[in-house]
Each structure stands twice: as C-alpha cells, then as structure tokens.
Design a protein around this nucleic acid. Structure first.
Lengths: 123, 123
DNA sequence: ATTAGTGTTATGGTTATCTAGTACACTAAA
DNA sequence: TTTAGTGTACTAGATAACCATAACACTAAT
C-alpha cells in the first residue's frame, strides 16, 4: 500500500500532490495494475484534508485513465501504465531539491551539509 | 547574474518559485552578498508576470533579512545569515533531511537521486 | 430487505494567488 | 532642477484551492 505524504508548506495544492504521488508510484512500480487505493474517505481522514480534495485528485486521474473508480466498490489502478517522461521526472526532482535547498539554506546549511547528512544515512 | 525560470505547471505559486530560486542561488553560492538583483519591473517583464508578484517575493525575503531593498536604488542580497545554536542546527539538519527524504521518497526518488541532483555542477 | 461501505454530486463560504491599474516616494545622473 | 529609474502602496477583480456540510447512488455482505 502506498504511503501518502502532504507538504503544506510547498505551495503545491494537495490534490496535485496526491496526483503526483500516485503517478510516480505507478511509474516506480510501487503501485500495480488492479491494486486498490485507499477510499476517498479514509485517505481524507488519513491526510486530514477534505473529502472533496481527495475526490478531485482521484477524479482527475480517472479522466486520464490512470485510475478506475467503481461506485460502491472502490478506486483501482487502471491498466494504462503511467509513463512519466524522463524530462518531467528530472524537473520534478529539481523542483523538489530547489525548494529543499532553499529551506535548508535559510537555516544556514549548504548543499554540502545536506549531501553529508544524506550520505551518512545511506551507510 | 541569476537567471530566473518559472514553471506554470508545477502548481507552485510564482512568488514562491522566485523566493526558492533566490534562496537556492544563495545557498549554492551563485548569489553573493551585496549583489544586485533584477529590478522588480524588469523581472516582471522578463517573466511575463505582474509587478506585484515580484514585489511580493522580494518583500518577503526582505522581511526575512535575506534581501535588502533601497527605494530608488535597487534590491540586493543581504548579509544576514541565520544564527542558530550549533546543537540546534544539527538536530534541525537531521529533521529537515528526514522530512525531505520522506517527501522525495513518496515521489519515488531515493537519497542517491537527491545527492546526484545536489552535486550537479552548473545550472 | 437491510446495512455498512463505497464513489458521486452539490451548495456555500473563506482564503490565497495573480492580475490590472494607478499613484506615490526616493535616488542618481544629466 | 529635471528626468529616468528605482522601490512602495493601494484598490479592485478573477480564479483556484480548500473546507464544511449534506445528500444521493451504487455494491456487497448479512
């Protein structure tokens, strides 16, 4: 089961973050065709956001054939494999890193500090 | 001189993207203390956005002592660096790295991906 | 048939973002 | 002094995002 995380400080709308994470989850193999997603209600409670926000995310992905919703049953990963272009992935990574480095920088940390901390964890 | 780029599809507010890029520029050493930034008007024209949006970004950074604005002259990189006790700093670094890894991970990015991006030269 | 759990739809309201437009205040150079 | 260029301040409006709340429609198990 995929684990969702929202970052309220990022400026990215919640429904967009949910969409992103599902798409990336499929692309990275963490989510597989036919797998059931959390129900709109449970995810809303989990993330402490409104039901409509989750619904909006799911609905948009259903329009894009990424998800398949069955009223009364649940929402599932569709058969259309979401292929995220390498370019888009790199932009996303860059955007996330840019935001992160900005935050870290405001605390006086350099890129080297962060790399040091991250590689320490990798050991 | 720093080169700004806005991504309208990212969902991140323009003023936030500008803030991020300035912070990023400082943290990565691309921007140095005392350096003049583009004028609010020229940057607005450059990025094809409204004057107020640029102003909002600059103003917020000025409040945080990252920038210094002089009416009639221009806006410059400030000298103030965040002063935080060493112990608190280390804990902070660990905590923000951990939080960031979680978010990046939910997008399918690994610590190695991030390190790769952060250690990239140029750009 | 009933019930619990699911997705769907709708109304109304608040806040944030961005825009357009206008005007004012200050600085440096001609 | 005048002018061009700078930051600053304000009003007003459009749109998007989010929330609270409520209701409706369908499915599967009992």
């Amino acid at each position: 089961m995929i684990e969702f995380k929202l970052d309220p400080k990022s400026g990215v709308p919640y429904y967009r973050q949910i969409i992103d994470q599902i798409r990336y989850g499929i692309a990275s193999g963490k989510l597989d065709t036919g797998e059931q997603l959390p129900t709109v209600r449970s995810l809303a409670v989990d993330l402490k956001i409104n039901l409509n926000t989750v619904t909006k995310a799911y609905k948009e992905l259903e329009i894009q054939k990424v998800l398949e919703s069955q009223q009364g049953t649940g929402t599932f990963i569709g058969s259309a494999k979401a292929q995220i272009p390498e370019k888009e992935k790199r932009e996303k990574l860059r955007s996330i890193c840019s935001e992160f480095l900005g935050i870290a920088g405001s605390y006086g940390f350099s890129a080297a500090d962060i790399v040091g901390e991250l590689t320490r964890k990798g050991r």
